[in-house]
Write a protein that binds this DNA or RNA. Structure first.
Lengths: 170, 170
DNA sequence: TGTTGATTGACAGTATACTGACGATCTAGG
DNA sequence: CCTAGATCGTCAGTATACTGTCAATCAACA
């Protein structure tokens, strides 16, 4: 049988490319998130960072980056903005002068409680056009794929072992 | 039956959220693309723009933004960079002094031919961890979802009608 | 103990993204 | 023809992202 001819150079190939679809979907997701949460002045990244700090009080920036799989450099400015909004505070660590420990402020904890319903509406809206069974299928496959590709990303997720050195002072 | 209690505020909820997975997958996809194409000095966005200009020679920036669903403001700098690399050229439109028509240069067309295999390797690698049947399922559902959410994005895709005013000079 | 190597936060530089605004220009309607 | 509204490219401002580098600091080892 004849070998597959070279694909024609056409925009239609782009429309069907995984990378293109992932990009479009991400942009749609951000757009929906911002729309649902416009009353709160929090971006998706800032929201994830707040949740992570809430889950792991006293985490430092490097470990935070591993826990949410965000770039460490980027995270610096994210933290600055959260601090400027008085949602988090940074305290120097007594036993290591290099690191700064992150904590939610009272208003950080408050906005987190308030924004949760909007975030959940946003997450639901992203999948809403699909039938319930298809939503499950899509999320299941996507979870698998992200997990299996973890090492391919610049900042692999280290949900567990990133915290091994935390809170185990004994 | 009891109403569902409020979800605990935990990072685990973020890990399973569609928006978070879309973001992670997009970052992984870009990472793989850049790795496979590192010999070419082209980003995914620049690649898509080149392909679109190749498919629609003489397109203007606004229509280009509709054809690949990229933000118009962003596209300005993308075009600048492609022009600086001598991959495209801009010519003023004789009948409308506002717009500038975009064309591939000879070297733009050349790099497009050369980079295609690397791009296809990248696209294949993104899905490679899944079984073939699952790849099809995932891409099918994702295509549907992006399409059905088209209007939710800031720059909806207008593949067809964006070009209605083009090339129909008679 | 003293030096090597790793880690941390910070920074500079580049590239997407989106919002909102602007002048130049075109189009439609009167 | 002339103005109101739309469109085009552009720009300023903000927010992610990634690469690479740096000084300060820490840990480990000879």
């Amino acid at each position: 049988m004849p070998s597959k001819p070279p694909a024609p150079i056409t925009i239609d190939a782009v429309y069907a490319a995984p990378g293109y679809l992932f990009r479009r979907m991400q942009q749609i997701a951000v757009s929906i998130f911002m729309e649902e949460c416009k009353a709160f002045d929090l971006t998706p990244v800032q929201y994830a960072a707040l949740i992570a700090i809430h889950t792991h009080p006293g985490i430092d920036a490097t470990r935070l980056s591993a826990v949410i799989a965000f770039d460490r450099s980027t995270l610096g400015s994210v933290i600055e903005r959260l601090q400027a909004k008085d949602y988090i505070e940074r305290k120097p660590a007594p036993e290591d002068k290099r690191i700064k420990l992150l904590y939610l402020t009272r208003s950080g904890a408050a906005i987190l409680r308030e924004i949760i319903p909007a975030v959940e509406r946003a997450q639901a809206r992203m999948l809403e056009p699909l039938k319930p069974a298809d939503r499950k299928t899509l999320m299941g496959l996507l979870s698998q794929l992200v997990d299996l590709n973890n090492e391919a990303s610049r900042v692999p997720l280290r949900a567990e072992d990133a915290l091994e050195h935390l809170g185990k002072t004994g």
